[in-house]
């Protein structure tokens, strides 16, 4: 755990100092609603910040990369041939058919840069809806939704994706949809667990008694109180979706030639690992960095959430 995680947040520290002052000359500064929010607590974590920065850098790298590619990443003619080690003009060498590895590395992250976050956000959003609705209504609704989630959970994510891609074809939107479907059950179960205790809270009971519509209760009373686990899930699911999408591409069911991504780069050049390791190691490295960034972020958020729950 980083020290940032345990030291009081600035706003809290200020409040404590003010409250503990012998002569409180001024009115103690009241932390803003934002500063007191779970999201702010999470974002104040050094670990979360480090992971977030790393993830943002990778996303920017993936988005800007195609514009920086020194060569056409999809043209093997005129190069030094396949699996050529780094030389002048080809600083990372060439791949299995002689494409410039550097150019493909720069241009190969764009799909992952939108597909992974899109999958993670959508999965967390849908998972939150299912989890909160199940927790709020309980009974038959809860049972039905959770059994449905159990059924989906029974399918291994990668197998599930391969099955549908084999039938429908490898479309990027389909990959996103399948990753979302594969991740929603996990998110729903976690967030249902987080939302269940809220049902007994006084403010929820009051809102219900006051006849406030269920949708509004869920939005106004439930959602803000599951924000922390939701953040944790978002980081986790981002990490998983990066891994899943890269794996699917590696297995040949993801982005298809002539298009490519970092996963396909690994798959296409794996036979040349001993001859030209850069063609494999470099895309592996950027996927690892992307994954580690989101992992650090998720883990940091989880720690903050755990500490906050304990404090409460």
């Amino acid at each position: 755990m980083s020290r940032d995680d345990v030291k009081p947040a600035p706003a809290q520290a200020a409040t404590a100092a003010a409250a503990g002052g012998a002569a409180a000359e001024a009115t103690p500064a009241t932390p803003s609603r934002w500063a007191r929010s779970d999201l702010a607590r999470v974002l104040r974590s050094g670990q979360v910040r480090a992971g977030l920065i790393m993830t943002i850098i990778m996303v920017i790298f993936a988005i800007v990369g195609p514009f920086l590619a020194p060569r056409n990443p999809n043209d093997a003619s005129g190069g030094p041939g396949p699996y050529n080690p780094p030389t002048d003009g080809f600083p990372l060498g060439t791949d299995n058919i002689g494409n410039d590895v550097l150019s493909r590395l720069l241009a190969g992250g764009i799909h992952l840069a939108w597909m992974a976050p899109a999958s993670a956000f959508t999965a967390v959003l849908l998972g939150a809806v299912v989890g909160v609705v199940a927790a709020y209504y309980g009974g038959v609704v809860d049972m039905l939704l959770m059994r449905l989630m159990d059924v989906l959970l029974a399918f291994p994510l990668v197998v599930f994706i391969i099955l549908f891609v084999s039938m429908v074809g490898p479309k990027p939107w389909l990959l996103v949809v399948l990753v979302v479907i594969g991740m929603v059950p996990g998110v729903a179960r976690v967030l249902r667990g987080a939302a269940l205790p809220l049902k007994e809270r006084e403010y929820v009971l009051w809102a219900t008694a006051a006849g406030i519509p269920a949708r509004r209760i869920m939005l106004r009373e439930y959602l803000p109180n599951i924000w922390s686990p939701l953040m944790v899930e978002l980081g986790m699911r981002l990490m998983w979706s990066i891994g899943a999408l890269a794996s699917i591409s590696y297995l040949g069911y993801g982005i298809q030639a002539p298009d490519f991504d970092w996963g396909t780069m690994i798959e296409e050049s794996r036979n040349g690992l001993q001859t030209q390791p850069w063609a494999v190691l470099v895309p592996v490295l950027v996927i690892v960095l992307f994954t580690i960034g989101s992992n650090i972020m998720a883990e940091g958020a989880a720690r903050v959430v755990a500490r906050t729950e304990k404090d409460r």
Binding site: A76, S77, P82, I97, A257
Partner: peptide, 21 residues
């Protein structure tokens, strides 16, 4: 690999060839 190269050459004259393994 032959399919990949063919696709690259075809793209130079606006023909889309999608190699499918």
């Amino acid at each position: 690999e032959t399919a990949q190269l063919f696709a690259q050459e075809a793209a130079k004259i606006g023909v889309t060839v999608e190699p499918r393994k």
